[in-house]
Every structure is written in structure tokens, then in C-alpha cells.
């Protein structure tokens, strides 16, 4: 009888330990990587940014908006660095955007909704060129598209 009790107690302890370990497993939370990581980090962001810049300069509709900035070595570095930092910081990467706010930067430029759409199409083309996955592409566009209200008709 005593042996049976000891055996029962041991089985109960093993069952509880098993149940506890099982419940622990269900509580494990997986941390979702940031969009920055999912995009491929600074390497992919800089490649997409460079492709975006060549796209807009080759785009007859909006090239005149960018020519002066990209034609000057130092202005080009500033524009490129700002774009990379802005995307990197906006997607949760280890960067800090040091440029002006979109509203400050675009006030007085009278950028039309058509021009903004053309610019976004050039960005999408750059993302497609580097085969950025649909989910990451949409997440990035969801971050950038709301900037339209600070850029268009200012």
C-alpha cells in the first residue's frame, strides 16, 4: 500500500512537471523582427534608395524637381543620406533622421498630387527591382504614403 502511494506520488509529480513544461511552451512569445530587419537592413535600403534616385531622374514628369539636388555632389550626398536615414529610422532601424520635417522641406514647392504619385511609382519600381516581398513593400508604403499631406500643395 505504501509502495503504491509512493509510486502514485511520483507519477503525479512527473505529470505536473510535464504539464508545467507544456504550459511554458505555449507561453513562449516570438518577437516579430522590425521592418528594417525584414527589408534586409541598410544594405537593401541603400540599394533601393539609389535605384529610386536614378528612377526619378530618368522620369520626365518629375526629374526637374530633383536635377539640381542630384547634379551637385554634396547636395546629392545630403539627399541620399536623408532618404536612407528616413527609411531606416521609420522602419525601426538604428538610424536617426536629421533632416527637416516633410512640411518644412516642401513648403513653397507646390508639388502636385500627380507628381507625388509619380514619385511613389518610382519608389515601388525600385522596390520591385530588388524583389522586396509584397508584405514588406506594403508596410513601407504604409509608413511613407501618409507623408503626402505634408508634401502635396504646400
Amino acid at each position: 500500500m505504501k509502495t503504491n502511494r509512493i509510486l502514485f506520488a511520483c507519477l503525479l509529480a512527473i505529470a505536473m512537471a510535464f504539464a508545467t513544461s507544456c504550459s511554458d511552451d505555449t507561453n513562449v512569445t516570438t518577437v516579430e523582427p522590425t521592418l528594417y530587419t525584414r527589408l534586409g537592413g541598410i544594405d537593401v535600403i541603400s540599394k533601393v534608395t539609389d535605384k529610386f534616385l536614378t528612377n526619378v531622374v530618368a522620369d520626365d514628369m518629375i526629374s526637374s524637381r530633383f536635377e539640381a539636388a542630384v547634379g551637385n555632389h554634396y547636395r546629392l550626398q545630403m539627399l541620399r543620406n536623408n532618404l536612407i536615414d528616413q527609411i531606416c529610422a521609420g522602419t525601426g532601424g538604428p538610424c536617426q533622421y536629421k533632416g527637416q520635417t516633410m512640411l518644412e522641406a516642401h513648403t513653397g514647392m507646390k508639388i502636385t498630387a500627380t507628381e507625388f504619385s509619380a514619385m511613389m511609382a518610382d519608389l515601388v519600381a525600385a522596390l520591385d527591382y530588388y524583389e522586396v516581398a509584397e508584405r514588406e513593400k506594403n508596410d513601407l508604403l504604409a509608413i511613407l504614403t501618409p507623408m503626402e499631406s505634408d508634401i502635396v500643395d504646400k
Binding site: 526637374s64 524637381r65 539640381a68 539636388a69 547634379g71
Partner: peptide
């Protein structure tokens, strides 16, 4: 020959 001035907002004293 690219335009020398105007356009995109990277200009002024900052640049």
C-alpha cells in the same frame, strides 16, 4: 547638363 539650382529641398545654408 543638369539644372544648377532650385528643385528638391536640399538647399540653402544647410547644404
Amino acid at each position: 547638363t543638369l539644372q544648377a539650382s532650385g528643385g528638391c529641398p536640399v538647399h540653402g545654408m544647410t547644404a
